[in-house]
Simulated assay, not measured.
Amino acid sequence: MKSEVFSLPDAELEYFPNFVNKEKANLLFQKLVNEIRWQQQNIKLFGKEIPQPRLTAFYAEKGISYTYSGLQLNPTDFSAELWELKQKTEMLSGFSFNTCLANLYRDGSDSMGWHADDEKVLGKNPVIASISFGGIRRFQLKHKTNKDLKESIDLNHGSLLIMKGRMQHFWKHQLPKTKKEVLPRINLTFRKIN
């Protein structure tokens, strides 16, 4: 499968624009948007509780939970579709995953702010595999110390982005708001929690 490798200092980033073919991606998008039990939870930002600017759901193998931004996520068992995508991602990447955080960005006002996936439970150099379905959104990266180092990628419908190596130590990433008219987008982020 063809991939694009981004040469970034202190990071490894590989992008597969056609990880899932368009026909299957269309079917999966409809199934996931309708069958996932989406929730909008509150997060603390600058001391205030506000609704997350997206909908989420958390899937994991038995006995695993995940906390980020003060949220304790209690998992649901993997559906057949998510399990199949997890296995396909593992075969391609050579890494194993035991959780999936699903995000639904309903329109351009839904977003994810600057952050790094660097929680201790993810291990020293976590591998994050991110599958996108639906509307194309721009994914932005910036180096934590060198302000001149920036990158952005338009994430296609059916694409897979793998972040690995020391990336989470040195880079932050976000999915910013946009005033452009964009279709809803589902992002499935696979991780391994230790």
Rank of each mutant, 00 (worst) to 15 (best):
L161R: 09
S79Q: 11
L73N: 11
T89G: 08
L28I: 05
F29G: 00
Q87T: 14
K44A: 11
S3K: 15
V182L: 11
D154E: 15
L82D: 10
I153A: 05
G165K: 09
L45H: 08
N74K: 13
K62F: 10
W114A: 10
L161H: 11
N103G: 07
G113I: 08
K124G: 03
W83R: 15
P176T: 04
L161W: 09
T145A: 06
G113L: 12
Y59T: 02
N194E: 13
I153T: 05
H157R: 03
P184M: 13
H173A: 09
W83I: 10
P51R: 08
T99E: 09
A60E: 10
I128N: 00
S65K: 14
W114N: 10
K177F: 08
A129W: 11
Y66Q: 09
S109D: 14
G135F: 11
E23C: 00
E151I: 02
D107H: 04
L28F: 12
I64G: 00
E151Y: 14
L32Q: 08
F95G: 00
M112E: 04
K150W: 07
K86A: 03
N98Q: 03
D118L: 06
L175S: 10
L45P: 00
M163C: 07
G63Q: 12
Q87D: 11
G70L: 03
V33K: 15
S111Y: 13
V20I: 15
K88P: 01
F190K: 09
T67E: 15
T76G: 01
L141M: 15
L28D: 07
L92F: 07
T67W: 08
F6D: 11
W171A: 02
Y68S: 03
F29R: 03
L104F: 14
K172Y: 14
L82Y: 05
S132W: 06
F6C: 02
S159H: 11
D10E: 15
Q52V: 04
L183I: 02
L71P: 05
L55D: 03
D148I: 03
P9S: 13
R138W: 03
R185N: 11
V121C: 10
G134R: 02
I128E: 01
G70A: 02
